[in-house]
Design a protein around this nucleic acid. Structure first.
Ligand SMILES: [Mn+2]
Ligand SMILES: [Mn+2]
Ligand SMILES: [Mn+2]
Ligand SMILES: [Mn+2]
Lengths: 217, 217
DNA sequence: GTATATTTTTAGATTAGTCTAAAAAATAAT
DNA sequence: ATTATTTTTTAGACTAATCTAAAAATATAC
C-alpha cells in the first residue's frame, strides 16, 4: 500500500523514465517533485523497500514491473477523472488537472470501474492522453512535438501537454485540440517560432507552444 | 486551512454536539475517532488554535460559528458524493459511505458546485440525510428513532443511519427506505423488539434495528 | 469530608515527509 | 594524475499525527 506522496513520486518516476525505459536521476526527480535532492534520496529508499523501484546509489532509479502497474493505475484514475470533469460536469480542459491530482488518490477499485463504465470506456482523456484499461494496459502512441516536425508535415494533433492552464487556454483559442488537422508551413531560424495551419487556419506559434503540441509520430 | 484529519475531527465534533448545541467530552470524541484520549487532547489544542472550536480544560469542547460552517461544508461534500455514487454510478446505498469518507476531503469549491448542479440540487442523500446548500444552510428535520415511538404511530421513514453496511443491506431487504410508510403495531417488553408495518408489509425488528430507522418527529 | 474511581491532561516516543548544511562519490578540467 | 566541479548521499532537525505510561483534576462512594 502506497501513501499519497509515494504514489506521486512513483507517477513522476514512470513519466520521467518514459514508461520504464530508462533510469531516473535524483536531481531530475527533485526538480519534477519541486523538492530537494535529500528528500528524494529518503523517498527512493522507501520506494525500493516496497519493491516498486530498484535503486543503485549514485546511478538513479528504475521502476519495477509492480511499480509500473501501480503507476499506471494512478494515471488511469487521473485521466478518467479528467474525462468525467470535462464530459459530465462541463469543466474546461484547462481546469481539470489540479482537481484530478487530488482525485487520482481516491482508493476504491469499484469506484473506478463504475466511473469507467459511466463514461463509456473512453480511450483518451480531454488532452488526448491514452487511458490505461482496468488491467493497466496502455496503448502508447509514439508522439512527436510539433517543434520537431519538418516543413510540409501534414497530420492530426494527437495530444497536448496538460499541466499548464494558461497554455491550454491559448491552445483552445487557436483551435489546437486533439483530432484537429495540422500542417507545418514554415520555421523561423531566429527564434524557432513556426507558421502552421490548424484546421485550415493560419497561425504563428512560439517554440514554447510548438513543444507542447503533439502529433502521431 | 484544515488537514484531512482535522476535518474528520471537526465533523465528529459537529455530529456529537448535535450541530453545536452541546459540549463534547474528550472520551466520547476518542471513542468516535477510534483513537486515544491523549491524541484527542493534542488535536483539540490545534483546533482551538485555529478557532474552529473553543476548549475548556476538563470540560469538553464547543464548536464555533466558523467551525460549524467548515463542518457543514465537509458534510455537504460527503452527502453530494454519496448521492452521485448511487444516482449516477449505480452503487447500492450500503456501498457509498466509505468512499464518500475519502471524497469529502477533495478541495475544489468549483467541483462541488458543478456536482451539485449535475445532480439536480438534491435536498437529501441516499440515506435521507439533508444536504447543506452552498451557503452551508441545512434544513434540520427533527428526527425520532423508531424504538422511541408509541404503538399506533403512523408516518414516513425520514432517514436511516448510514455507517454500517450490513444494517443497510438488511433495511433494504425489509424495504425500510426514506419516504416509505411506517406504522408501529406492537412492542415486546422482554427484548424491546417491535412489530411494525413497512409499506403495508408486517415485520419484526430488534432494538438494534429500530434505533437506526428515523421518522419525522 | 476523606478515600476511591474515573476522566482528562502531560510527558516522552514513534513514523512520514520534509528541510538545510556538510560529507562523499562521480564527473570534468587542467 | 591531480584538482575542481557537479551530483548525490548522509547527518541532524522540524512538523503533523499518533501512541503508552504516568500525573493531575474531577466525580463518586462511603
Ligand atoms: Mn492531468
Ligand atoms: Mn490529461
Ligand atoms: Mn455517509
Ligand atoms: Mn449518508
Amino acid at each position: 500500500m502506497l501513501s499519497l506522496t509515494e504514489e506521486n513520486y512513483l507517477k513522476a518516476i514512470y513519466h520521467l523514465s518514459d514508461g520504464g525505459s530508462k533510469a531516473v536521476l535524483t536531481n531530475e526527480l527533485a526538480e519534477a517533485m519541486s523538492t530537494k535532492a535529500a528528500s528524494v534520496t529518503d523517498m527512493i529508499k522507501k520506494l525500493s523497500a516496497k519493491e516498486v523501484i530498484t535503486y543503485e546509489k549514485y546511478y538513479g532509479v528504475n521502476i519495477t514491473a509492480q511499480g509500473k502497474s501501480e503507476a499506471l493505475m494512478v494515471i488511469r484514475k487521473h485521466r478518467l477523472w479528467e474525462t468525467f470533469l470535462v464530459d459530465k460536469l462541463g469543466f474546461a480542459w484547462d481546469e481539470v488537472h489540479e482537481v484530478a491530482e487530488q482525485l487520482e488518490h481516491i482508493n476504491s477499485p469499484r469506484l473506478i470501474e463504475k466511473l469507467d463504465e459511466f463514461l463509456g470506456y473512453p480511450k483518451v482523456d480531454p488532452h488526448g492522453d491514452p487511458i490505461p484499461d482496468h488491467k493497466g494496459k496502455i496503448k502508447i502512441i509514439p508522439q512527436v512535438p510539433v517543434d520537431q516536425l519538418a516543413i510540409g508535415y501534414q497530420g492530426k494533433i494527437a495530444a497536448v501537454k496538460d499541466s499548464d492552464s494558461n497554455l491550454l487556454k491559448y491552445l483552445d483559442k487557436i483551435g489546437a485540440r486533439p483530432g484537429v488537422k495540422i500542417k507545418v508551413l514554415g520555421k523561423e531560424e531566429y527564434d524557432d517560432s513556426m507558421e502552421i495551419l490548424i484546421d485550415d487556419h493560419r497561425v504563428f506559434i512560439s517554440k514554447a507552444v510548438s513543444q507542447n503540441i503533439l502529433v502521431v509520430g
